[in-house]
Design a protein around this nucleic acid. Structure first.
Lengths: 211, 211
DNA sequence: GTCTATACTTGGATAGAC
DNA sequence: GTCTATCCAAGTATAGAC
């Protein structure tokens, strides 16, 4: 890939993160990339196409980091710990901001929505796999289908990111991870008792389905 | 309040909802309101000020609807039912879209962030009150502080709205409310058993604090 | 209060020199 | 591939007629 191409993509990411979708013009991005405005159209055809390329780049980067984590997630507690680690880094680096800016910006550009959705698909698929892995070993598997739980997780991360960027403070978001971790521990401690409740029937039924 | 003023606010709300922050210009909004572009500046001073007025209007409208619901929420199940009802209406009418567009748009306009945050404050305060009311009668009160739970609820709603607008489908969001309702029922059934677990200690300790 | 007209700025996009 | 130059559309904002 060309050198300026990469510079433009990087500048587009920075612009989306720091100034948002509404100011992400060819001129501003090119200035940040240290090159001419016309190169945006030469390399990408349009500003929108450059922004999509930027989102794809962020997506690809994050997927690499995420997959490394999926290997070391057995229990719910472990998953939450890993998720917190990744999310904190993403929050700090502004990766999720790029995503939320593109999602809301998609309302303003006809045809952009499906393209953004396509970039988000791997994130959602990853969340589904991670959640499925944890639920398989948990008695709540039948209470909360993996698809729904994954949707809730992705929505929660997007919402936490928006509030963090609005407040200029990510402490509230990180505190929720710590809380989730504590609840995960309790769920682990409850598990042996599940058989005493009617929850046990659901859990066993689910185990049979899996085999 | 002047007639055109109201028309401009209404047009701004519609524009934010249907075309997003990036296209919400004085010309477009004025055209939608059926009046001249210059009136935006005469009545509001700037486009940004008009958009803030639009968000304030939506906020005020929703607060009225929300407070009517707070009266009839005793149990967790009732709260979730009410929340689903309101959220479904908001999703349909696009009230939350206006909010998410303004939050992400705030990245693009210096000084807009705090003003949007001020509009969001009543929503967050309301969520805090609603959550507090339910948690007071629940054994999980000490496990999840009301402030944190409310933050999670607001973040969740924002995220669900973004995904719904991206997918053009709010079924996944509504399904999560149904799931939350089912989990709420289970929590109610678990409550009598809480005293048998170490959760009971926390719940009783909390009850003492309240008295 | 509302309109027209206008000044000024920024942005998307292309043509053509190098 | 990269730049300059340019066209045109759209935006913010103001002045002034009505």
């Amino acid at each position: 890939m060309s050198d300026t191409r990469a510079a433009l993509v990087a500048a587009a990411i920075d612009t989306l993160r720091e100034s948002g979708f509404a100011t992400a013009s060819a001129r501003r991005i090119a200035q940040r990339a240290g090159c001419n405005q016309a190169l945006v159209f030469y390399h990408f055809g349009s500003v929108t196409d450059l922004l999509v390329a930027a989102l794809e780049e962020v997506s690809a980067q994050r997927m690499d980091a995420y997959r490394c984590l999926l290997d070391r997630t057995g229990t719910l507690t472990e998953l939450i710990d890993s998720a917190r680690e990744v999310f904190e880094a993403d929050l700090e680096a502004g990766h999720v901001t790029v995503l939320t800016e593109m999602i809301s910006g998609a309302q303003s550009v006809p045809g952009l929505g499906p393209r953004v959705a396509a970039c988000l698909a791997p994130w959602r698929e990853f969340a589904r796999e991670a959640v499925r892995g944890v639920l398989a070993a948990s008695p709540v598997a039948r209470l909360v289908p993996a698809d729904e739980a994954a949707h809730a997780v992705v929505a929660g991360l997007l919402g936490l990111e928006m509030l963090a960027s609005l407040d200029g403070d990510q402490a509230a978001a990180l505190a929720l991870f710590d809380r989730a971790r504590a609840l995960g521990d309790i769920l682990d401690r409850i598990r042996p008792l599940a058989a005493l409740l009617d929850l046990g029937g659901a859990a066993r039924a689910n185990t049979r389905e899996d085999s």
